[in-house]
Amino acid sequence: MGILQILIVIAIVVLLVKPLGTYVYHVYSNDPNKTDKWFGWLERFIYRLIGLKNRPGMTWKRYAVSFLLTNIVLVALGYLILRLQKYLPFNPNGIENMEQTLSFNTIISFMTNTNLQHYSGETGLTYFSQMAVIMMMMFTSAATGFSVAIAFIRGITGKGATIGNFFEDFVKSHTRIFIPAAVVVTLVLVALQVPQTLDPVLTVKTLEGASQNIAIGPVASLESIKHLGTNGGGFFGANSAHPFENPTPLTNVIEILSMWLLPASLPYVYGRFAKNTKQGWVVFGAMMTLFVGFLSLIYFSELRGNPAMNVLGIDASQGSMEGKEVRFGIPQSSLFSAVTTAATTGTVNNMHDTLTPLGGLGTLAEMMLNVVFGGKGVGLVNMLMYAILGVFLCGLMVGRTPEFLGRKIEPREMKLIAIAILAHPFIILAPTAIAFLTDLGQGSITNPGSHGISQVLYEYTSSAANNGSGFEGLADNTPFWNLTTGLVMLLGRYISMIAMLAVAGSLVRKQWVPETIGTFRTDNGLFYGILIGTVLIIGALTFLPAIVLGPIAEHLKLG
């Protein structure tokens, strides 16, 4: 029954990839289509409002500077609101201004689509901050990621010198994808009993006669975009484990689909742009294969239970239920954990710190690879980066100049791809080592031994992959963690985005090389295998020593 639940959700995703991918392709193809009729009037109004009459194509450099400047303005505005929230409207619960380093961490966290929360939403943020900073950033960070991914796709599949107009892509991402989808999902969640109100905290009498405060607020609207934008976090500190965020198994499936469908449809969008949908299905197949592998690891590890608990004679028939919600059980908890770390959403419906060592390894590995569907747009860009690397390695093996989609891959592209690939493990492993070397880092570790290593490794991996979930036993709301994870989130977001836009800008100007019988094909089963192999080999070479010290050592000690 558990496996059947999982298979049904996967089947829904596979069935919806093509129609959703077709819609997304039409949104960004800039050819006249039906979606113009529905949303064109709103976009024309916005363009007039921001003085964007003409929307010329941008070179990759102009595109990168545009998205960077837009993000800087949003960061400045958000930081100001968090530091002044006490004096701003919609603060019925009298919440104070946020501390400086925590504001720094929070604003970076939400701008980079990480949504790592070193605070608890119901006590740390006013309703105004929840809506004007947190929710606003959830839309804009997702739209930024989506826009960059589409620009990258245009670069590797198109001709000319430009890769689209950032502001046009950014506006369209909001008007045609995220806002309509968020409205629909919000209404569905409200219908399924998720609160949506500006009323203050409820004070109720318990059965024992004591007084208890129950936090409520505009939950449903935040809940919808936090998943649709693969943002993560939550209105409440417990995220989607909280019954007001995720009351039933049905809302759980809706939330899983909300965060999974758009990233899953992007490979198909890439195939449409490449005028060969087989290219997209090869990438989708590689992502889904990796996903099913990691999901199986999580599911069967949790189902087996915790050996240390089992020897105590505790009933293990339900699996390892520590830190999980009874209404979801092992299947829906495992699937949620696998999807939230694959799509780098980072919201949780069970506590990842209490996953079994191998279950925790599954979630950790998905973030380390950062290509298994991935966050809004970023996962596809990373996977295509590995595809180009795979083509390059195969070219070296047969002594032929590598080509990808009819363009020669030269040292300039490989230099940029090497930086993007190597930056990810560096910004995870270097701060992890620093945390162990300093009292500031060690002082926050609440579990001795291997699990303590996993806690720190998970925190920086989650930050670098812009995921945002955590092994929350780590006491991480300190200036040391706020600043170091803040910097890791920034580097994890922008280095690969800028480098890959540069690759797109380089490829878009190149002459097409006609396909011959000797051309290495990237739309068949052989390349599907090479792509998976490239991802796993690079991942193992960079991260295996660290995960042996953490989750694998912990698993072996459990017996």
């Binding site: 450099k61 400086q100 380093t101 720094f104 300039r412 800028i498 480098a499 800008g505």
Partner: peptide
């Protein structure tokens, strides 16, 4: 005062990203 440090840190990091864009531009051109 801590606010100023946070703003300077953010400005410094975003400045580095702009420098990275310029450097990537050189790699693409050269």
């Amino acid at each position: 005062m801590l606010d100023l440090y946070m703003v300077l840190l953010l400005a410094g990091v975003f400045g580095l990203f702009y420098g990275f864009i310029v450097w990537c531009g050189r790699v693409v051109e050269e």
